[in-house]
Amino acid sequence: MPTLIRQLEADDLAAAGELARLAFGSAPSTAPPSTDPRPGITGYGAFDPDGRLVGKAVDLHHEQWWAGRRVSASDVGGVAVLPEARGRGVALALLRELLRGARERGAAISALYPTVTGPYRRAGWEVTGALRAVDLPTVALPRHRPAPGLTVRPGGPADLGATADLYERIARHRCGLLTRRGGVFDRDQPPTALPDGVDGLTLVERDGRLVGYASWQRGRGYDQHAVLTVEEVLASTPEAARELVGVLASWQSVTPTVRLWSLGTDAVATHLPLEQVRQHEQRIWMHRPVDVVRAVRSRGWPAHVRGLVDFALTDEIAPWNSGSWRLEVDGGAAELHRIPDEPPTQLSVRGFALLYTGAADGYAVAEAGLLHCPAGTDPGALDLLGAGPRAELLDYF
Rank of each mutant, 00 (worst) to 15 (best):
Y113P: 04
C373K: 03
A111R: 07
P28L: 13
Q189E: 14
L384T: 07
R209P: 01
I339N: 06
L4P: 00
Q217K: 11
S324G: 06
A15V: 13
V127P: 01
G197V: 06
P256R: 03
E63N: 12
G246I: 08
L263Q: 12
D266E: 11
R220A: 14
R105I: 13
Y113T: 08
G208N: 04
P119L: 07
W251V: 03
G77M: 06
R187T: 14
G380A: 12
D330I: 02
A295Q: 06
V58Q: 12
E97G: 02
H271E: 14
A318Y: 00
I317G: 01
E18P: 01
I5A: 03
P344A: 15
D186T: 15
L384F: 02
V54D: 07
A14V: 03
G40N: 12
G221A: 05
L274E: 08
P319A: 11
L4K: 07
P343W: 02
D266N: 15
A267S: 06
G155H: 01
T270W: 02
V258G: 03
F24G: 07
L210F: 00
T128L: 05
A130Q: 05
W285S: 09
V365R: 04
L394V: 12
S34N: 06
A359S: 13
A91F: 01
A164L: 11
Y396T: 08
P289C: 10
P379S: 08
R187N: 02
L228H: 02
L385S: 05
I317V: 15
V309W: 01
F185K: 11
A240R: 01
A27H: 05
